[in-house]
Design a binder for these strands. Structure first.
Lengths: 223, 223
DNA sequence: ACTGTTTTTCACCGATTTTTCACCGCACCG
DNA sequence: CGGTGCGGTGAAAAATCGGTGAAAAACAGT
């Protein structure tokens, strides 16, 4: 699935130079030019990564960091002209995953993006819990040792849940990442798929043990 | 629990300056001064993080990176005199999580270590206040260890308060953040939510201890 | 073209959540 | 003393959401 990045910067020049480069690498790109809209876009787009400028109108970059961290573990790379030790330490300690000083070299930014995104996938190889075994590298799901037949969409949704196992995944997040950004409000799809997943994976589909509903928010894969 | 770090560098000066600083931060430190022993130490010590120099006898830093990545997801921070774009990109693409150019500033190194370790720790994403525990990755609120059921709006308001814990948050600020800018004067909403939050979180909802009213201003989360 | 599977769409029900409204109490002030 | 503004309280109406099942549509393989 295509990974998505939210670029937050008030300098149109930076945005204009970064965006096409990211798209050329195959990322979906969303843009915000101040802190307020950044948080709004973040909710809507549920990006896999946030590229964040520090100096911004409306809401300071550090504040944006905190707010994002308070509601998700999405990786953040700060990009800023401020190169002072104190700025770097502050940003990293407020939830940023990496810090790059402007002007930066594009290929380094891309490499750091790859590194941070890779980290999110490293810890996932296989998930084993109770009678389920999910191997994301081989795209294989076993239930009590027996392979389970999942359709592509079913698997994609399950993978999304397992990727954030024990964490909540928004219904909108699922739709966006499985079907694509343009389907943002087609939450009915998810209902159906979750149901089929539960029938195939849960001992008692009506009282789910793994795929738990988080009312009015989304779902959660509980180990 | 004490975290352990494996420092790999062939320059005794660097090792001598870093090691005590790390220990002062409460890390266990293991040392290796060439690639061969680095891998050996890695097996023995199973560190939480590796600080890796690139230029080394016996086995090159990139190679060490690859070997480690083949068998584990342990985070790696590369520290090197080589600051060329190509070096950085190569290291990051071979499994390094971060790259710092020598000479570096100690506090920045420490901050980057914290950032990388935090990512691996699921616990670190929790905010602990009084007898409340807010786990943002799981979107889970615990009160004295017991999970509390919060609706999305309740959770959002609480998050807003906790984000500025011990500081005052304007009623209007809350409305704007949670409901959106267009609802700017719908302060009635907040009344209701605060009430429900107090019922769910306070020992005595009528005499709040955590969610304190700041008359004529807003509310404050007091630890 | 036929068949079986997968995905999409739709409608209903019950439960929860959010909103709205009316009233209460209290502090402050002239 | 009475008025006024602000926050607390409670309840009822309205909106939203998730589970369920079923049927239509799209799709794949033969």
């Amino acid at each position: 699935m295509k990974q998505s990045i939210l670029v937050v910067d008030d300098d149109p020049g930076i945005v204009a130079s970064i965006t096409p480069a990211l798209q050329a690498q195959g990322y979906e790109v969303a843009v915000a030019c101040d802190g307020q809209t950044a948080l709004k876009r973040f909710e809507q787009a549920a990006p896999h990564l946030v590229l964040l400028d520090l100096v911004m109108p409306a809401l300071d970059g550090i504040a944006v960091c905190q707010h994002i961290r308070l509601r998700s573990a999405t990786p953040i790379i700060v990009v800023s002209v401020k190169g002072a030790e104190a700025d770097i330490v502050t940003a990293l300690d407020h939830g940023a995953d990496d810090y790059l000083v402007k002007p930066f070299r594009l290929s380094e930014l891309l490499a750091r993006i790859r590194a941070v995104l890779r980290r999110g996938q490293l810890d996932r190889a296989t998930v084993r819990c109770a009678d389920l075994e999910i191997d994301t590298t081989r795209r294989l799901v076993l239930r009590q040792g027996q392979p389970v037949n999942l359709t592509p969409i079913e698997y994609a949704v399950l993978a999304e849940l397992v990727a954030h196992r024990n964490g909540v995944v928004t219904t909108r997040q699922i739709v966006q990442r499985v079907w694509g950004p343009q389907y943002a409000d087609a939450t009915d799809y998810v209902k159906g798929v979750i149901r089929r997943l539960r029938v195939k994976l849960e001992p008692d589909p009506s009282h789910p043990r793994y795929i738990v509903t988080e009312p009015h928010v989304g779902y959660r894969f509980a180990e």
